[in-house]
Structures are given as structure tokens and as C-alpha cells.
Simulated assay, not measured.
Amino acid sequence: MPRLFTGLEISAQTGLMLSLLRGGLRGARWIDPENYHITLRFIGDVDDPTADEIADALARIRRDAVEIRVNGLGSFGNGKPHAVWARVEPNRALMELQGEQERILQRLRLPAERRKYIPHVTLARCRSATNQDVARWLSEHGGFQAPAFTAARFVLFSSRSSVGGGPYLVEEAYPLSVAGGLGDDFNADAFAGHDFG
């Protein structure tokens, strides 16, 4: 039974810059740079027929490429921090892509996402870091900013339910149109389909 989510991949340059932030936070489990991504919609554990239905429905999305700007850092957790992340600036194209996926998945009878969508790249899960540890780390690195890049596709990822933070596998990739051709980071070989059955 696959555990699925949709997301956008990070450019190699941004991934390298984010990887340089690793360390200096006690009790953090850092995400491997090859697993950096921007989640669009967490789907969860589904059976194989539902996974195929989701993959087919997502293939009908027709949207433009999305400009991504990673700017600033933050943390999740009320009272006790559970993750630190890099902020992705919301823009219209990104929010509309995420909203369309939410509507498609609800039409497939999957439960609605209850949390407000906050685009971000998770950098580390906090096992035993305190609020003070996280505040110190954020103050030391808070001015983070990476050059903008264009996401020319979105991806249906799978992960093993027993492990948080990867490895994530690309099950399907869906192109987003780019005026004047595909971006430099585009990899046509990654468009191989996958049968969940």
C-alpha cells in the first residue's frame, strides 16, 4: 500500500544552498538533500487502485510552470518544535496548482486537508531540540535567501510509511508548460510512467 504525496522538486543550486544550513541544532535529524521538496498535497496510505485513480486524475492538470523563491526560515510546533524549514514565497501560480490538486483529491473521495497550506521545504525534524535551540538556530541563519528557479513539473511521490524524511520515489511526473521551452533543470528521462498495480 503506497504512501503518496504530490510536490515540486528543488533546483540543484537551491538544494546545495539549503544543505549548507545543516548542523548546529542539537536534537535535529536533518533531511538528506536529495529528498528536499515542496509538498503540494499529502495524500497518505492508499490501495493500488486508488493510487492509479489519483495518478490518472492528476494527469489532467494543465498549468503553467511555477516560479519558486525560497526566502527565510521557520519552525513548526506549538510549545515544542517538531521541524525547521525554509519558507517558499506563496504566489498565485503555486497556490492555484495546490488548490486544484486539493479539489481533485476531494472529488476522489479523499478527506480534505484540514491544515492551512504553508509552502516550505523541510530541512530537519526536531527530536529533542528545545524552543531556545530552534530560536538560536533561526537567528543565526534567518537571512537565508536563494535565487528564484522555475518548477517545470510537479511530481507524485511515494514514501515508506515507517520512515519520515525519505527516501522519496518519483512515481509519476507531470509537466507544467514553460513559455519558450523547458527549463535548464528539466529532465525528460524522469517522465517514465509507473504502474502501481
Rank of each mutant, 00 (worst) to 15 (best):
E171Q: 14
V170T: 07
P167Y: 09
S161K: 13
D185N: 13
A188H: 07
S158D: 00
Y174A: 03
E172P: 01
D184P: 13
L169K: 12
Y174K: 03
D184L: 12
V163T: 11
V178D: 12
D189T: 08
L169Y: 12
G183Y: 08
L169I: 10
P167C: 05
S161G: 08
Y168D: 05
V155M: 00
R160A: 10
G166T: 01
F191N: 03
G183N: 11
L182W: 15
D189M: 04
V170F: 03
D185Y: 11
S177G: 06
G180D: 13
G181D: 07
G180P: 05
P167S: 10
V163I: 13
F154I: 12
G165W: 10
D189R: 13
G166P: 01
L176R: 01
N187S: 10
G181S: 08
D185L: 14
E171P: 00
E172F: 01
G183H: 14
G165Q: 06
F157K: 11
V155N: 00
G166S: 04
D184H: 14
F157I: 07
G164S: 11
V163A: 04
L169V: 11
F157D: 07
V178P: 03
L169Q: 12
F186L: 02
A190R: 14
A173L: 07
S162R: 04
N187Y: 04
G180K: 04
P167A: 11
G181A: 09
P167L: 08
A190P: 00
D184Y: 12
F186S: 06
V178C: 15
A173H: 01
L182N: 11
G166C: 03
R160Y: 11
G166F: 05
D189E: 11
S162M: 01
V178Y: 09
L176E: 00
S158F: 00
V163E: 13
R160G: 08
P167T: 06
N187V: 13
N187L: 13
A188G: 03
F186E: 13
F191M: 12
V163M: 07
A190I: 04
S159A: 06
N187C: 07
N187R: 15
Y168I: 07
L176D: 02
S162T: 02
D189K: 14
Y168P: 02
V155C: 00
S159R: 07
F157Q: 07
A190N: 05
S161L: 11
Y174N: 01
A179T: 06
